[in-house]
Write a protein that binds this DNA or RNA. Structure first.
Lengths: 336, 336
DNA sequence: ATTAGCATTCAAATAATGGGAGTGCTAAAG
DNA sequence: CTTTAGCACTCCCATTATTTGAATGCTAAT
């Protein structure tokens, strides 16, 4: 591809992103100072190479997936770390009052607004954090609350019914034992450890009621395994011209409601991942691009922010923005 | 309205609910054993009375809001408590293993599936429950977790950073005081009481750091005020013929995403409330009916289940179903 | 290598057409 | 007084033409 062809490709992408209409040769005449015929010739070559496409025989050109890919790899990647125009985001991260999780949420809200796309935050999985405290709080004569707290400040609770003939003192002993046993155990190992200890220590005798109570504890623990997520801005996207097709729109909403969207969010990649159109495995998402950016939290845990939008999106602005956000969220973790 | 007119109205509603097409006079000939001309005359009267409408000069008839209203008041309300065909639901409530909140969630899922509508559960507002315990759990050298637990077993937490020069013993005293002060206080009164006590008791001296810490507590308390809700089945509705209009569809999704839907859910009504079409105040919902059914929990607190669907919905089946569900959810609370 | 010129293609908007389902009204029959 | 057959009329909707215009590819001249 010659330098001029590359410029034309770039112009086509930029224009198309703005207008959502196929780009004709005349549109570029002013910028390039050559005749429309010359541009048509070049466009013909670019089409043969697979970077652009026509929507019908006599239409203007539209970037193909390969075209977007080229655009991203050569044009966007060579951008210096852009941080211009991220003013609102800077403001956000300068606010030291707000708690980290809340800040991430706000950043995701802002991201979806600023891009008119759907934004998703996939929190670090609490599964690898450690038990800090196990607690039983009576809340009425026959009900109590099981509380499990981890070193990251995550809390899960489960309400249980206490049968009348349960001895309270005994229960307290059980809790003490559980604490002794489980503090500093990673959530992922709790179930295993609990079952082992019950078999091999004197806790066994204490746990007459273990069937119900220990099960309830295990259930509370298992709640941590659920990934915390936040998704916002689905309605933004609906107004994009690519969703004028009612069928596509319905499928998109279904995909989100059924949580299928999480299948195509890349959470195990270093840096920024861009999946364009059919690079996504879900059929209803094959006109969309998914951009994911990961950040490190603690103990090798990763969090992800993702952006789902039409393939026709402003990569030049969005990709640096995603980098920027991940970097700053990571910084929030480092500061602690 | 004569008996025959009432029968015709009922038939029009029933047929229209099934077919989503305007009903012509010929359609009813087989059922009524009179000629289509007679039926046309009767339909003319029903139209004059405002119970049915035409979509254009020579179209069949469609129920008006007034028509649906009449149908519900006279035909549905006179049904004996129908419980036929609620087989799956019965099965659900017979399962004594599952926790109450989980059971409600499952019922809502099933409800939305069975009706192809959007179903919503609005949990009892924790705002009126009472503080059971206030707690501070250290999770690292400079971080702690504020925990607030209510008599209903609701838990909210907030992570705070502890500055190095804070005396731990002092902090413990503060917590003890807070407990003493706040236990059994309704969440709704906490903020007020807290501010009052700070002004008038010796706690003032203890709270050198109150700006940050007390504020964090208040924030944790205020989280209870947020109503717990569960919403499901928005994608079901999208396939209903009334959402063939892309603009309506977009508005509907936006309304849900912005939580505006909660504005039209009736949570302070006894029994079943049915809001048809323009009886709803939100513009984007004026082709929808919202059915809400409340249940009592404890201490005068109410929970609500709601169903949002096109005005053309199977009231005959849905209204008894909503009654049935609310009754059974209430029973779950009574059993405790 | 570039470009003016021209026939060609196709989408999208607008207009014309015909069929069909349904209505209201009238006048006759029950 | 109620019912009904008959008929003119209305309007939607799907189909088919017609027009317009923006774009293309190709050719031949610069």
């Amino acid at each position: 591809m010659t330098k001029r062809q590359e410029i034309i490709l770039k112009l086509i992408v930029d224009e198309y992103v703005k207008s959502a209409e196929p780009i004709g040769s005349k549109t570029l005449v002013d910028v390039l100072n050559v005749s429309s015929a010359t541009i048509r010739n070049e466009m013909g070559i670019l089409e043969d190479l697979g970077y652009i496409e026509k929507t019908h025989t006599s239409s203007g050109r539209v970037p193909s997936e390969k075209g977007y890919r080229y655009y991203i790899e050569t044009i966007v990647k060579n951008l210096d770390e852009e941080t211009d125009g991220f003013f609102e985001f800077e403001e956000l991260f300068n606010n030291k009052e707000t708690a980290r999780d809340e800040l991430i949420k706000e950043a995701i809200d802002l991201l979806s607004q600023a891009t008119n796309c759907t934004a998703i935050s996939l929190g670090p999985n609490a599964y690898h954090s450690k038990v800090k405290k196990v607690q039983l709080v009576p809340i009425s004569s026959h009900q109590a609350l099981i509380l499990v707290i981890t070193n990251f400040g995550y809390v899960e609770s489960k309400q249980i019914n206490i049968h009348e003939d349960i001895d309270t003192d005994e229960l307290i002993k059980v809790i003490d034992l559980l604490n002794e046993m489980l503090v500093d155990t990673p959530i992922s190992k709790v179930s295993e450890k609990l079952h082992y200890e019950i078999q091999h220590s004197h806790i066994k005798e204490l746990l007459k009621y273990r069937e119900t109570i220990v099960d309830s504890f295990i259930e509370a623990f298992s709640k941590f395994a659920q990934t915390k997520y936040y998704l916002t801005g689905q309605s933004n996207m609906l107004y994009q011209p690519e969703f004028n097709d009612i069928q596509k729109l319905r499928e998109f909403i279904s995909t989100i409601e059924n949580n299928e969207i999480f299948k195509i969010v890349e959470s195990d990649v270093e840096g920024v991942s861009v999946k364009i159109g059919t690079e996504n495995q879900i059929t209803s998402m094959q006109d969309c691009t998914v951009i994911s950016s990961t950040y490190d939290t603690v103990d090798g845990e990763k969090g992800t922010i993702s952006l789902v939008g039409p393939t026709r999106m402003d990569y030049r602005r969005v990709i640096p923005l995603m980098k920027y956000l991940a970097k700053h969220i990571q910084k929030l973790y480092e500061e602690e």
